[in-house]
């Protein structure tokens, strides 16, 4: 099925040590174009660490990251963004006191002409494009000039996702996007994710919620104690198998699980 499809992201032996803590060991991961995958695992399994290496928030101790077939090294999140990788982080990376367009364009403001820090903002263009970005992701926010602080958790998360979705051309990573949200808001975020799938934008979703994972993604990558315990096709597996990989209770359920 995926043999003729292009690999968007591939990691080889990706490893991250924090001093003596081996947060991530030899992760070999791949993602095909248009594919939505989930990363699941217990707390401390290395999921967020993995995401941080891919998005340039941290630099891996060892290993290679190949993006669209080329080896890449991201020294900061901006470098990752420049090649088209956007991330939505667990702790909302939004500035509370700014309004919606300011948040969506934070760090890449539209200006009239470039005068460095003293460039004048093209507020109208940012407002217009924010409006479009939110429409494209199906997010409804009554007034974009409200500061983010006055919005619900769901609205804030939607802004964060729209921000990522409107700039990401190649890949979006979401680290627990619905962890802090209510039922209705979670549904809204899930709809945005489906919308991304329709638009063919690949997604890596870190989630604790297995129901959500089965609903949304094509493949499930299971992390355990800093290693990739295995990959399962969402259509060909069930919750039990995933859980046993996560906990490592039932050994031998998957070929990769043998080295746990």
């Amino acid at each position: 099925m995926s043999t003729d499809r292009k690999i968007i992201l591939k990691t080889e032996g990706l490893t991250k040590h924090y001093g003596g803590v081996h947060a991530l060991e030899d992760a070999d991961f791949e993602l095909y174009e248009g594919e939505h995958v989930a990363i699941v695992g217990d707390n401390g399994a290395g999921k967020s660490t993995f995401v941080r290496q891919i998005t340039g928030v941290e630099q891996p101790t060892r290993g290679r990251i190949l993006f669209e077939g080329k080896e890449v090294e991201f020294h900061n999140p901006v470098a990752a963004r420049e090649v088209g990788i956007e991330a939505v982080f667990q702790n909302l990376a939004l500035a509370d006191d700014l309004d919606v367009p300011s948040n969506i364009f934070l760090g890449r403001e539209e200006v009239y002409f470039n005068l460095g820090p003293f460039s004048f903002l093209n507020q109208r263009k940012m407002y217009q494009r924010s409006r479009e970005a939110l429409e494209k992701t199906g997010v409804k926010i009554p007034n974009l000039h409200n500061s983010i602080a006055n919005m619900s958790g769901g609205q804030r998360q939607c802004v964060a996702i729209s921000r990522a979705a409107s700039f990401a051309s190649k890949l979006i990573l979401m680290d627990e996007p619905t962890a802090a949200l209510g039922v209705q808001e979670t549904t809204q975020v899930e709809n945005i994710i489906r919308n991304l799938k329709e638009r063919g934008i690949p997604l890596i979703l870190v989630s604790h919620n297995l129901r959500q994972v089965f609903n949304l993604v094509d493949k499930i990558w299971v992390f355990r104690r800093g290693r990739i315990a295995g990959m399962l096709e969402a259509g060909k597996t069930d919750g039990n198998e995933v859980v046993s990989l996560i906990t490592g209770v039932q050994s031998g359920v998957h070929e990769n699980a043998s080295y746990i």
């Binding site: 990376a93 006191d97 760090g107």
Partner: peptide
């Protein structure tokens, strides 16, 4: 942005 959320500002480049 920096006063509001320094981490977010940094992450945003």
């Amino acid at each position: 942005a920096i006063g509001s959320n320094e981490q977010a500002a940094r992450m945003s480049g």
